[in-house]
């Protein structure tokens, strides 16, 4: 069942078009990430879904009902702000009870019980009488989260949910958010500029660029099969290779600037001519096996990163970055052969 439809939404601020005929459908219970660089329109889209901004044209449909002209207080949604926006003069329990109180759902005792339950769900039920300023950043975020789920909204919107936390807490919170989503099954949309966050949390990642969808798909799909240079680069960073595709009999070969060639895997639309390819850093092997396409290379420099080693290699006239396990990177001769599976060299459309 479809929980949210964004129907050719356009948003202009003055002369600037922030969203350009944007379409989106989100199924009930789906966990969607709106991913993109700043200025791509992802926050504006979230605010339009919430009702805090009105689209210049187009419609928002939540749960089968057109809500485009409806103010946020009349939509049954929750939005967790980046700043958490806890009410500083109210206790934790009162903060969490606030949405129920405003919507006059149930009796006061029942509201308090539900607020308690929501706090228990984020493991904060021992702090009910504290005030927001007495809590750490991570705890404040849990309160904001409890407050967002307490009224069982049709949609849970999260604005950069993890960006205010330090690295360690962020990891905990990723696990927490995923667990909460699996427990409650709330349709969730979150905005992020952090590709790790999007990959770690979402069922579906919507990569946005310049007010439109660059590519949408499951995290594995977006990471594994990016269609454009932007997608390849934004998700994880990658080696972008400009090769000349040439036909040799019935196989296509990729010609490197210095003249060496590697066999290319057949794919739709791959034709002779100049073409950009993506090669993930971790797809490059410093000890290639027989199934790999190989190339003579030399290691220019290496960075030891703990669980991995990053090597800058020069091959075929191009500088490539390879990320491998430290053992295979260690004690490598400066001149060697590198390789990758042909399917990992992915043609891009520009």
């Amino acid at each position: 069942m479809t929980q949210l439809v964004v129907q050719s939404v356009v948003k202009r601020f003055g002369k600037q078009t922030v969203l350009n005929a944007f379409d989106l459908e989100v199924a009930k219970g789906e966990f969607v990430a709106l991913l993109g660089p700043s200025g791509c329109g992802k926050s504006t889209l979230l605010r339009i879904i919430a009702g805090l901004e009105t689209p210049s044209s187009g419609d928002i449909v939540i749960n089968g009902r057109v809500v485009t002209g409806l103010p946020p207080e009349m939509r049954n949604i929750a939005l967790m702000f980046q700043s958490y926006a806890l009410l500083p003069h109210l206790s934790v329990l009162e903060n969490v009870r606030f949405p129920l109180r405003m919507r006059s759902q149930a009796s006061r005792a029942e509201q308090e019980r539900r607020a308690h339950d929501a706090l228990a769900l984020v493991q904060l039920d021992q702090f009910t009488e504290r005030y927001p300023r007495q809590l750490s950043g991570g705890q404040q975020q849990r309160v904001a989260l409890a407050r967002s789920i307490v009224a069982e909204p049709d949609l849970l919107l999260l604005d950069e949910p993890l960006s205010n936390l330090d690295a360690r807490l962020r990891e905990d919170m990723q696990i927490e958010l995923k667990r909460l989503h699996e427990t409650l099954g709330l349709t969730t949309i979150f905005v992020t500029h952090d590709q790790d966050e999007a990959l770690a949390l979402a069922d579906t990642v919507i990569l946005m660029n310049g007010g439109r969808v660059e590519q949408r798909g499951a995290p594995e799909e977006l990471y594994g099969q990016p269609r454009t240079e932007f997608a390849a680069d934004f998700l994880g960073g990658a080696n972008i290779l400009e090769l000349e595709v040439v036909r040799r009999g019935d196989v296509l070969m990729g010609l490197f600037p210095e003249g060496s060639e590697v066999e290319l895997q057949k794919s739709d639309g791959l034709e002779p001519g100049a073409r950009k390819f993506m090669l993930r850093k971790e797809a490059i092997s410093l000890a290639p096996d027989t199934e790999m396409a190989t190339l003579a290379a030399s290691i220019e420099t290496q960075n030891y990163l703990g669980s991995q080693t990053r090597s800058l290699v020069r091959a075929g006239g191009l500088a490539l970055v390879a990320v491998t396990d430290p053992v295979s990177a260690k004690s490598k001769a400066r001149d060697l052969r590198i390789g990758w599976r042909p399917k990992d060299l992915i043609p891009l459309t520009s």
Partner: peptide, 18 residues
């Protein structure tokens, strides 16, 4: 004041006078 307090309250269902 956190500029988002008012918007957060709207999302939580508070009318203008509330």
């Amino acid at each position: 004041m956190d500029p988002h307090l008012d918007e957060a309250a709207r999302i939580m269902g508070a009318r203008w006078w509330q």
